[in-house]
Nucleic acid binder design. Structure first.
Lengths: 185, 185
DNA sequence: GTCTATACGACGATAGAC
DNA sequence: GTCTATCGTCGTATAGAC
């Protein structure tokens, strides 16, 4: 069981960094220090089964982390700013954004594999639920809260894409600056 | 020359649909009804050179189309709404978003190939310049206009990603509804 | 549960005839 | 400028020993 979770952890990072199709099994095995036999023992249906396991794992960890941040800050604005700050910090430390986006998997696989698409959609749904809940606690109506929650996740996901293209954390900083406009009534 | 532009056109659509790594040369050749010899005559440096040509071509067509829309509507709000409406229409007609995003190329290649990353960054830069110019004409300060322009492109790009994951045009509709919050002073 | 060995197709790219 | 033929590599996946 420890091997299985190590595979998932390593594969998740690699998939986020290089995309699903960009990671060969050999590279993954080298990184995990295991062999094909072991991989196919844990994931009999191969690479796509592994990807879905990675997405479920990402879903849990991202949801937990965002929930933690949102529990710690009194307002949605402060919580979202803190979340983006964390993304920026991670980007500046590592040069990429690992652990907080499934964009590469969405754009690569959403039109090709229904199970993968569903797993990505669940992740977006969960984070939007966290945003939405806090917005309603602040007095937004349900429909307004849901609209803003969807927009927040679009803004953050798009902001990460811009950072990758520009090779700079500036887009996420800008997005963070604009949040007050979006979050006032 | 006619062959070359047909290759670019076909390849652009395929890359956007299935991602760069997801499109094999054989599939592309079949679709274009040409052979390897011809492809490598026009693109001696192979697939990545073709990708960059596609990105430049996309850059021109997207910029022109957005410029057209922004010239036609009096306010940034109306223009952006019209642009998103067009994306939604295209999505509902074809089931995917082809011709208006480079997300898949960014997330697949941005960390791997500098020329590809640069070509994507240029596209974002050009569209943001269009937004920004119109915002300034409406009285926004330069720094405010630029912040909003970056956020608009993040919002649209992220919105498309959510649509693909959810298999629904709803996220883009929601994003469109939220625009007034972002665009008022 | 992990290993080695292997199958076999697809990949991007090249050479050379026409 | 377009064709065919072919190269070497790497892709995912499987079989079977330990």
């Amino acid at each position: 069981m420890e091997t299985k979770s190590r595979i998932i952890e390593t594969a998740t990072a690699l998939f986020q960094l290089k995309g699903y199709k960009g990671v060969g099994l050999n590279e993954l095995l080298r990184e995990c220090k295991i062999t094909k036999g072991s991989l196919y023992h844990h994931f009999p249906n191969g690479k796509e089964e592994l990807l879905i396991a990675c997405l479920h794992s990402l879903n849990e960890s991202i949801t937990a982390q965002i929930e933690g941040i949102f529990a710690h800050y009194p307002t949605t604005l402060e919580a979202t700013e803190a979340m983006i700050d964390m993304l920026i910090g991670q980007y500046e430390k590592t040069g990429t954004i690992i652990g907080y986006t499934v964009s590469s998997m969405v754009s690569e696989m959403a039109t090709l594999s229904a199970p993968v698409r569903t797993a990505c959609a669940e992740l977006y749904y969960n984070t939007q639920a966290i945003y939405s809940k806090k917005l309603m606690a602040e007095g937004f109506t349900e429909s307004s809260a849901q609209s803003i929650a969807v927009s927040l996740s679009a803004l953050v996901e798009g902001g990460m894409m811009l950072c990758l293209a520009q090779k700079s954390s500036e887009p996420l900083r800008t997005v963070s600056d604009v949040l007050p406009k979006l979050l006032r009534n």
